[in-house]
Design a protein around this nucleic acid. Structure first.
Length: 437
RNA sequence: GUGAGCGUAGCUCAGCUGGUAGAGCAUCGGUCUGUGGCACCGAGGGUCGCGGGUUCAAACCCCGUCGCUCACCCCA
């Protein structure tokens, strides 16, 4: 094998986010941060790997995510690392488990009020990649943990989410909500659903048949056209919620209405993670493939206890950044992001010193400046400025050096003027303020 | 894990019934020693994903393999 010629490439399901896309990503994530902080959420930064057991316990050992989609590795098995005990770790497939682990570890129940946290970062699932699905993908998520399970919390979380989408100009989305009951009423419903499904088992596909025993709720989620009529006649959880859950769901809808949040009830909306209770919600967007959910979330009142913490209520969501960005790009409604402001077109060694100095000044003033490291032919210099998308070319040659001025040329319309150093700084700074606002 | 489609230059693609590769764009340079976008000229860049088979001859046909894409499952 001649390994020296081998081309390395990003491994399956991972990808590079290159400029100018990276600017769009930063803007999107920054918009989320700004929105969330206006709701008094604060950022938590978490490890990207944890003990495998944490995910098994929280997400659910029988879920696809844990049973076959985690990147898991062992350390401490070889002699060299004998200081550390043998451990099995996994790259996080989602972040709620880590937030809850951190909540318990740092006794955050002693923090004042409801704890409102958000996170931004990569997640890892070993699935077959397709449109809008990657093995390393990115999520922006938020969680509220505390003693209260008031429907107003659910509503505020959803309002915040939809407000963010609006600010990011990710419109043409649909919010679906549902309640899947709690540990009192859901098991009864699931049993009833199972009974009904057994009666029609011969008329549904093998996947759905299998789920009758493993996870009857998932049958409701089936997309097979031939199963739709049958599914439509199955008992609905909304008719089988206990009084508390029914009231909570009614309250949520009332809260959403008074906040002006448009939603659609979707009795077939079930979520794949074991820890959800009561409120579940999902946002789908246009311009995506079959993976069209850009956000999923719900309430998880038993999770903190399940992981060994005090009785605590919780709710949260996770936005799929890759998909949201994809939808944004498909919509064509992209924001105009800061580009190169000034290209310094200098000629001759006499101008070089001036060029270096003014570049420093302009950068200090917050402008993006490109200073060619080597002398270029003037014509090529302007051509390059154009190709780099600069708004201005700052021309410094013999004339300018002799007269102590600068020639500023606006590339868009070729408008050109001679300015003193003071006027130049003044002019560009005010121009920057105007375009930023 | 399952299925389908596709792999020719950095990108988008052409290449007829098999005769050992081309265009546009992009990049770099020239026409053009202080004025970009245009035009013209030129250059670099490809073991046609890889391996095997059939054939006098394979980018093209056959088999295998790898990769990518989309879909299923499931999920953001």
């Amino acid at each position: 094998m001649t390994e020296n010629k081998r081309q390395f490439r990003a491994i399956k399901g991972t990808r590079d986010i290159l400029p100018p896309d990276s600017a769009l990503w930063n803007w999107f994530e920054q918009t989320a941060r700004n929105t969330f902080e206006s709701y008094n959420f604060r950022e938590i930064r978490l490890p990207i790997f944890e003990e495998t057991e944490l995910f098994a316990r929280s997400v659910g050992a029988d879920t696809d995510i844990v049973s076959k989609e985690m990147f898991t590795f062992n350390i401490g098995h070889d002699a060299e690392s004998k200081e550390e005990p043998s451990q099995t770790y996994s790259l996080r497939p989602e972040a709620t488990a880590s937030v809850v682990r951190s909540y318990i570890e740092h006794r955050m129940q002693t923090f004042p009020g409801n704890l409102k946290l958000y996170y931004v970062g990569p997640m890892f699932r070993r699935e077959r990649p397709q449109k809008g699905r990657y093995r390393q993908f990115y999520q922006i998520g938020a969680e509220v943990l505390g003693q209260s399970d008031a429907a107003a919390i659910d509503a505020e979380v959803i309002e915040m989410l939809m407000t963010f989408f609006k600010r990011a100009d990710l419109t043409r989305t649909t919010l679906y909500i549902n309640s899947i009951g709690d540990k009192n009423c859901r098991p009864q419903y699931v049993e009833k659903l199972r009974e009904e499904l057994r009666k029609v088992a011969d008329r549904i596909g093998p996947d759905s048949q299998r789920r009758i025993e493993t996870n009857p709720l998932r049958v409701l989620d089936s997309k097979l056209p031939e199963e739709q009529a049958i599914i439509g006649k199955l008992p609905r959880i909304s008719d089988h919620l206990c009084d508390e859950c029914r009231e909570h769901f009614a309250k949520l809808k009332e809260e959403l209405r008074l906040r002006g949040i448009a939603y659609e009830e979707n009795w077939r909306l079930v979520r794949g993670l074991d820890y959800y209770t009561r409120t579940t919600f999902e946002v789908i967007a246009e311009g995506l493939g079959s993976q069209n959910a850009v956000c999923g979330g719900g309430r998880y009142d038993g999770l903190v206890e399940l992981l060994g913490g005090p009785p605590t209520k919780g709710i949260g969501f996770a936005i799929g950044t890759d998909r949201a960005i994809l939808s944004l790009q498909e919509s064509g409604k992209l924001p105009s992001l800061p580009a190169l402001a000034v290209f310094v077109a200098w000629m001759g060694q006499a101008a070089y010193l001036t060029a270096v100095n003014i570049a420093q000044k302009l950068r200090e003033a917050g402008l993006a400046v490109e200073l060619p490291p080597e002398e270029m032919k003037f014509k090529r210099s302007l051509a390059l400025a154009d190709k780099l998308g600069a708004r201005y070319a700052l021309i410094i040659g013999e004339d300018e050096v002799n007269s102590g001025t600068f020639t500023l040329k606006r590339l868009a319309d070729s408008d050109q003027k001679k300015l003193s150093k003071f006027d130049l700084l003044e002019y560009l700074e005010s121009e920057r303020r105007d375009t930023r606002a």
